[in-house]
Design a protein around this nucleic acid. Structure first.
Length: 267
DNA sequence: GTCCATGTTCTTTA
DNA sequence: CTAAAGAACATGGA
């Protein structure tokens, strides 16, 4: 579920439920979802007030009133919701926090690829790439010239650019007319400028439509995203390209399915 | 039973 | 040594 647009939508919809709220009680924690190993997360957050909720890449960052921070990463199947204390507790719920007024913050993640990481007073993002929505083409160029991988694989790397995943890399490359197999270091200045713009416009449009729900992604209020039907290549193998009607192709790159238009994105 | 999945990290290979 | 490719993680749906 969770690439930048979905994570941003969760942050937006969750904010009003948690910012300024005090953590009254930690009702449930699955300890092996917590990093670092063995850290007493419940004790660290109990009684604290949540001062802000922000996003960095795909991380949902909670800042507490004692200047400590933690983040929740949704992995593949994570859902972070604010619900009534009376709502049934679904299977694979790994964190339940009482925020008062019969509201609970809940984290559910069947596949358990997600993570709750205690940061303490640090920011902990120094290795991460730039934020796509505010980055400049020169920042992306500096990262891409250093790697000799296919552009698809480079853009999937959170240390190159933060927040993209399989859907939005494919969609952005289509919008920019760049073949996913192109060597990252082979892209010229013009192509990187085009790519930067395509990434931004693709993500902004996806956020406007509240993200993509492929199977079961929902925001903090349980609402699905509407962007899937606007995908132009992802999950559209064999369908005619929106621009030129050539059938969309699917290949495997970096172990991930990769969809593109062979005519609009020539090598 | 098989294959596939919105992600990351550890291991193996070149 | 480093960078890139591959395997592994855990669950559920088609």
């Amino acid at each position: 579920m969770p690439e930048l647009p979905e994570v941003q939508t969760v942050v937006t919809t969750l904010s009003s439920h948690v910012v300024g709220k005090k953590i009254r009680k930690v009702l449930h924690v699955r300890r092996d979802m917590i990093t670092p190993d063995g850290f007493d997360f419940a004790a660290a957050i109990k009684g604290r007030t949540i001062e802000s909720l922000t996003r960095r890449g795909k991380r949902i960052v909670f800042a507490l009133d004692d200047a400590n921070r933690f983040f929740i990463h949704l992995g593949m199947s994570g859902k972070l919701t604010a619900e009534s204390a009376k709502a049934p507790i679904l299977p694979h719920t790994h964190l339940i926090v009482d925020l008062g007024q019969s509201r609970q913050l809940r984290f559910r993640d069947p596949r358990r690829f997600g993570e709750i990481r205690w940061l303490g007073p640090t920011v902990g993002d120094e290795k991460m790439g730039p934020e796509p929505l505010v980055m400049r083409a020169s920042q992306l160029a500096a990262k891409l010239k250093k790697t000799k991988r296919a552009i698809k694989n480079a853009l999937m790397d959170q240390n190159v650019i933060a927040g993209l995943g399989n859907i939005y890399v494919d969609e952005s490359l289509f919008a920019a007319g760049i073949n996913p197999l192109t060597l990252a270091s082979d892209l010229d200045e013009d192509a990187i400028r085009r790519l930067t713009k395509s990434i931004k416009s693709t993500l902004r449009r996806a956020i406007r439509h509240r993200g993509s729900t492929l199977r079961d992604y929902v925001d903090a209020n349980g609402a699905a995203g509407r962007f899937k039907r606007l995908h132009r290549v992802y999950g559209r193998k064999g369908e005619p390209c929106a621009k030129c009607k050539t059938p969309i192709e699917r290949i495997v790159l970096g172990g991930r399915s990769t969809c593109f238009c062979p005519r609009c994105q020539p090598l």
